[in-house]
Design a binder for these strands. Structure first.
Lengths: 204, 204, 204, 204
DNA sequence: GATGAATGAGGATTCATTCAT
DNA sequence: AATGAATGAATCCTCATTCAT
C-alpha cells in the first residue's frame, strides 16, 4: 500500500520533472535562458511556481538538468547508430552519415537543444553546465577517429574531434530552421565540409 | 557661431555614441546582452543613464548600432587586405590566409564581437540585428568565390560562402580564448578545414 | 478495544505535540519566530507538515502552546523550591537565592525560553501569548512579597514584583550566554540588584 | 548653478533617507524587523520600492542606519544633559535623574527605538548592528561610574554599567506604554532600583 | 543637452497552509 | 490519522525607462 503510494508518487515526480524540463527547453529555445522566467516555466509545465522549487532548488539547476537530459538522449541516439568495433570497416562517407544523421535527427526532435549546445547564451557562471553536452560528443568523435587512425597522436585526434563537432554545431541552426530541399542541401554541404576536413587527417 | 556650435555638438555627439558603444561592447562581451544593464553601460561610458537615452531609444538599439559598427570595421579591415581583382592570382592557401588572418585580428582586437557574431546570446527578437554582420562577410566571401570560380552557380557560391563563414565563426571563440602555440594550432586547424571544404568546390 | 485504541491514540497525540513543541523551542531559540518555518518544525519533529496542522491550527498556536508549556514547567520548578508559609523565615539573601536560582536553572535547561520571555521577538499580535508566562511569575513574586510585607499596599507590591521580575529577565540572556566564572559574576550582580531594590521596600 | 543643484539634491537625499528611516522605525516598532517589508517601508516613506534601493543596498542596511541614527540621537540627548567633569558633585539621586530622564525622553520621542535596543527581534546575523546602540550607553555610564568611584576596578565598573543599563532598558517598554501617574510611578520605581543597586557599589 | 533621482513592473524564491491519496 | 506534493501570495531586489531640474 505504502509501496504502491510511493511508486505512483515517484512516477508522478518523474513526470513533473519531465514536464518542467520540456517547458524549460521550449522557453529557453524561444527566449534564451535569461529571457525565461521560472514562473513561465512553471506555468507552461502546468504547475505552480512553488511546486517547481520542490524539484529544482533554483533556475540554474533546471538548465543543468536539461543539459544532462539532452546529453543522455544524444548519447543514446548516437550509440545506437553503430558501435566502435565496426567503425574501421566504413568508408569516410558512411562514417559521416552515421554520425551526422542521428545528430540532425536529434536536433530536429529537440529544437531547443541548440540553445544549450551553442552555449553562448548562458551566463558565464553556467556555461560549465552545458560543457559536458558538447564535450561528450567530442569525446565520442575522438574515440572514433582514434579507432580509425590509431597512429594519430592523441592531441591531434582531440583537436580534430573538437573542430569537427564545432562545424556540425555551427551548421545546426540553419539546418533546423530550413525545410525540405534547402535543408537537404545544407546537410549535404555540412557533410562535404566534414569530409574535406577529415580526409587529409585520416591520410596522415 | 551657431554652425560652429553645431559642428562641435555633433562631434561631441559622435564621441558620446562611440563611448557608449565601446562600453556596451566591453560589457556585452563580459556579461552577455541580458546580463548588461543600461545603467552599467552609461556608467562605463562616463555619462548618466538619462543621457544614454538621448542617443538610443532603448537597449536594443544599442545592440543594433554596435552590430552595425562592428560590421563597418570588419568590412574596412577586410577590404584593405586585398582587392577582388587580384583574387584569382592567389593560391587557395594564400587566399585563406588573407581572409582569415584579418578576421582573427579583428576578433582579437574586439573581444566582444563574438558576442554579437555568435548571436545565440541575444533574445530571438534581436537576432536579426546581428544578422547583417555575418551576412556582410558572407557576401564578400561569395564575391571572392565568384571571382575565382565564375562557372559556379550563384546558389552554390552563396551556400559555400555561408558554410565557410560559419566554420570561421565557430572556431573564433576557442581561438580568441587560447594563447600562443595553442592558438596557432587552432588557427592552423581552421585553415585546414576551410581548405578541405573549398578545394573540391573550386575544382568543380 | 476502541477505548484502548483511543487511549493509545491520545498518548501518541500528546507525544506528537511534545515533539512539535520541542522542535519549535529549539528552532525559535536558534532562528527566532519569524526565522523558523513550520516545515522546519515538522521536519525536526519527525513528522510531515500536514500532520503538524492536525495538532495546531497555525504557526501562532505553536508559539502559544509553547509559552503555556514553559509557564507550567516554570511554575512547577518554582513551587517545588519552597512554599509560601516558610517565606517569612528567610533572610532576604536566602529568599533571593531560592527564587533566582531555579529560574536560572530553568533558563539554562531551556535555552529557547528566553526567546519567549523576552518577548520582543514575536510579532506584536502575538506578544499577548507570552504575557502569561511572565505574569505568572510576577504573581508568584507578588504573593511572596505580600507574605513578607503584609502592610505593603497591593499596588506597590505588584509594582515591586513586576520590577523585580523585569530585572531578572533582563539579566537572563547574558547569564545564559556566559560560562563559568563570568556567569557566576553576572548572577551575583543580579542578586545584588534585587537586594538593593527590595531591601528598602521591605523596610517600608 | 551646478553647485546649487547638488546642494539641493543632497538636501533632498538626506530628507529621503530621514523619511525612510522614520518609516522603518515606525514599522519595525509595530511589526518587527521580519514583519516589515521593504515595499511597506517605501510606501510609508512616500517613495517607490526602487527609490529605496537608491539609498540603501538592502533591508539590513536600513536597520543598521537606523541603529546608527538612534545612537547618535541618544548620544546627543545624553551628553547635552551634563558633562563628566561635574559628575562628582552630584548626589546619587541627582545623577540618576540626569541620566534616566533624557533616556526616557528619548524613548518617548522615538517609540520605535526599543525595537532596536531590545535587540532580540533582529535575526542573529543582524544583532551586531544594534549592539553599538546599547554599548555606547554602557560605555558612557561606565565612564560616569569611573569618575565617581575611581578606585573601583574597571571590570566591576563595566559590569555595573551593563547591569544598570539593562535595568533601564528592561523598564522602558512599560514606561513608554503607560501614561500619566502610572508612568511616573514606573519611572520612580526604576530610579529606586538603580539607586538600590548603585549605592552599595559607590560605597565600595 | 545633461543629470541622476524616481518609477514600478517583473523576477527568483520562500513558506504557511491545504488536500488528494 | 498521516503524508508530502501542491499552492500562490508575498518577499526582496533589479533594471529599462522617464522626467523634473
Amino acid at each position: 500500500m505504502t509501496e504502491a503510494h510511493s511508486v505512483k508518487r515517484q512516477a508522478r515526480g518523474r513526470q513533473r520533472i519531465a514536464d518542467i524540463l520540456d517547458a524549460a527547453l521550449a522557453l529557453f529555445a524561444q527566449n534564451g535562458y535569461e529571457g525565461t522566467s521560472t514562473n513561465a516555466i512553471a506555468a507552461r509545465a502546468g504547475i505552480s511556481p512553488g511546486s517547481l522549487y520542490q524539484f529544482f532548488p533554483n533556475k540554474e539547476a533546471i538548465a543543468e538538468a536539461l543539459s544532462a537530459r539532452l546529453l543522455e538522449q544524444m548519447r543514446a541516439a548516437h550509440s545506437s547508430a553503430f558501435d566502435l568495433a565496426q567503425v574501421t570497416d566504413l568508408t569516410l562517407h558512411e562514417l559521416i552519415d552515421r554520425m551526422v544523421d542521428p545528430l540532425i535527427a536529434f536536433n530536429l526532435a529537440n529544437p531547443g537543444a541548440k540553445a544549450l549546445m551553442a552555449n553562448t547564451d548562458l551566463p558565464a557562471r553556467l556555461q560549465g553546465a552545458a560543457r559536458p553536452l558538447q564535450q561528450a560528443v567530442v569525446d565520442r568523435v575522438a574515440a572514433i577517429i582514434g579507432a580509425r587512425s590509431p597512429r594519430l597522436p592523441a592531441a591531434e585526434r582531440n583537436l580534430a574531434a573538437m573542430v569537427a563537432v564545432r562545424i556540425v554545431v555551427a551548421m545546426m541552426p540553419p539546418i533546423v530552421t530550413a525545410q525540405g530541399a534547402e535543408r537537404n542541401a545544407l546537410i549535404a554541404e555540412l557533410k562535404k565540409a566534414l569530409h574535406g576536413y577529415v580526409l587529409p587527417i585520416e591520410a596522415h
